[in-house]
Design a protein around this nucleic acid. Structure first.
Lengths: 324, 324
DNA sequence: TTGAAAGCGCTAACAG
DNA sequence: CTGTTAGCGCTTTCAA
């Protein structure tokens, strides 16, 4: 493996000159530039990123923490983050916290070890004390960590209202909201709050079914759906995340309910999965790509110490499907 | 930010001794160990990963190349890879090639630059010449790259047969197979080949609908489904990937077909999405988690230069759903 | 315009 | 058992 000094020797110049040529910095005479380029070519020289990193004190890697990545919301998020980070010249290192005992703590540790330049944090952690006093660049994605860590998120109050309005057009009487574990401190809790408030203002009975913490597999959602139909009999509406609704559709069908005739359903998130299958799902869509692009740009701004004028909050919208 | 020499000074020892203590190598007297640990504590010292990387000539990062990550197959794969790599002490750096003009080439370049220790490659690249003569550790996931790069994959011949057998139990007459772009050189092409062979041996007419290259969004699949129903009228079976089938279910329903009464459907991959929705989908399931675990262990073996006795090929199985 | 030299922060061989 | 020394491979002053 050729090193910079091999190239220097081959070209008959000093390593520093090779460095200048490679990084197009300073003034180098045409003549030596050509000599260096020829040497690079001849030796098939490729600079070591590790050495540059140490010298420049950065890695151009951004860490992304999510609970799961097989879950459609996070898989769309991760894809959008990777795409945006790539276009900003960064690579994405992924950490899924689900099932991994304090992998998040280790990841933060890696941030301090300068394994990455910054982090976008979107996991459902209960203990966020590790973020206290953290000097490194962190952006939260739809998650409250502490007063110093800004949050990119969707306006969930509007989201909750859009969902409620969808149900209210079809006079339901009893609607169940499937919620994530409420111990997680997130702006997303707003959409349920506003949803129930709005529904009750219009005289609709609502109930809440809370899911266990960090439950993201389809088995988790199917189990919750089973539980819902066991506990509640006279219902005519269900509101929950994409996966929750897709699971309820299965259980509802098994029990002979017709959708939307017998039960209306509205999903929150509006990932691609709501658009396939026998019935496309009526859903409140979070602008995942845009949220991701903003989160990526914000974290890079923080790493570089620059400013941007991007908004922190974006609007969701309703996708009309066939379930409500 | 404290450095190793600060710790050394604080503890009144040499940097190398601090290093020994931190890495639990060699023999260090209890006394100095305690002194060092106290100094580490006091200065809140955290070693720099970049410096260790340069010194040890490794990064403990494995790159993973996939076409997309919002696609359920790859999102499940990525999650399983991350989990396994994590337990092996490695981090996963992700590269989605879809929509990114030669991002793959850049990624391979990064491998050569020692940004990562090895790569698991699962993208649908048409030009695999960049892998020619590559010295760095690479494992292919369900993809032919070249004779020197071993492949982890599922036994797709069995997969194709399982799918055919599912249809043959219900005497279909005309079944369409939706295939990925056939220019991609992958073991997965086998499942269509065997599927069609088996069906035709039993007197069933089959046709092939080929998708465009690198088409992975639900819009792509819906478009293909529309095309299918426009081009073929008298069909009673469809075989394709999870996303393809889910999309066909939607279009079939729109056109008034009942599943499985009018059309039987079998999906290939069997990701979680086949288990939710109004009708769970009959599917050939690839053992994604196990394939991922093997790929991860294989690439790490290659990085470390060790051997393992893990198999390269795993068996798929049929998940009975309600669509065939 | 170029080269020498110091430095990024850690590890490891080798004395002692 | 511990300190000295020499790297790992690149960047960046600072002279010349």
């Amino acid at each position: 493996m050729a090193r910079i000094k091999d190239v220097a020797k081959e070209a008959g110049v000093a390593p520093s000159t090779v460095s200048l040529v490679l990084n197009k910095k300073g003034y180098v005479s045409e003549e030596t530039r050509l000599k260096v380029e020829a040497a690079v070519e001849k030796l098939n020289y490729i600079p070591s990123e590790m050495a540059r990193n140490l010298s420049l004190q950065r890695t151009n890697i951004i860490g992304v923490i999510v609970p799961s990545i097989s879950h459609p919301f996070f898989s769309e998020l991760a894809e959008a983050l990777e795409t945006e980070l790539y276009s900003l010249g960064y690579k994405m290192m992924l950490c899924c916290t689900k099932y991994k005992e304090n992998s998040e703590r280790k990841f933060i540790e890696m941030l301090k070890r300068q394994t990455m330049d910054g982090i976008i944090m979107g996991a459902h952690s209960l203990d966020v004390s590790i973020y206290e006093g953290l000097k490194e660049p962190v952006i939260a994605f739809d998650r409250y960590l502490n007063d110093n860590i800004p949050i990119v998120h969707c306006d969930h109050c509007i989201g909750g209202r859009l969902a409620a309005e969808a149900f209210l057009q079809h006079d339901c009487h009893h609607v169940i909201g499937i919620e994530g574990y409420q111990g997680v401190h997130t702006p997303a809790n707003d959409y349920h709050r506003v949803f129930h408030e709005t529904m009750r203002q219009h005289g609709v009975t609502t109930d809440i079914l809370e899911m266990p913490w960090n439950a993201f597999t389809y088995e988790d959602f199917l189990a919750t759906a089973e539980k819902l139909f066991k506990e509640y009999r006279d219902i005519d509406g269900i509101f929950g995340s994409d996966m929750a609704i897709a699971s309820c559709m299965r259980v509802a069908a098994q029990r002979g309910y017709r959708i939307p005739r017998d039960i209306k359903m509205v999903a929150y998130d509006g990932t691609g999965m709501t658009q396939t299958g026998i019935q496309p799902i009526t859903a409140v869509r979070q602008p995942i790509e845009k949220l991701a692009a903003i989160a990526a740009q914000k974290v890079v701004s923080k790493v570089k110490g620059t400013k941007d004028n991007l908004p922190w909050v974006l609007q969701p919208r309703l996708l009309k499907g066939e379930t409500c």
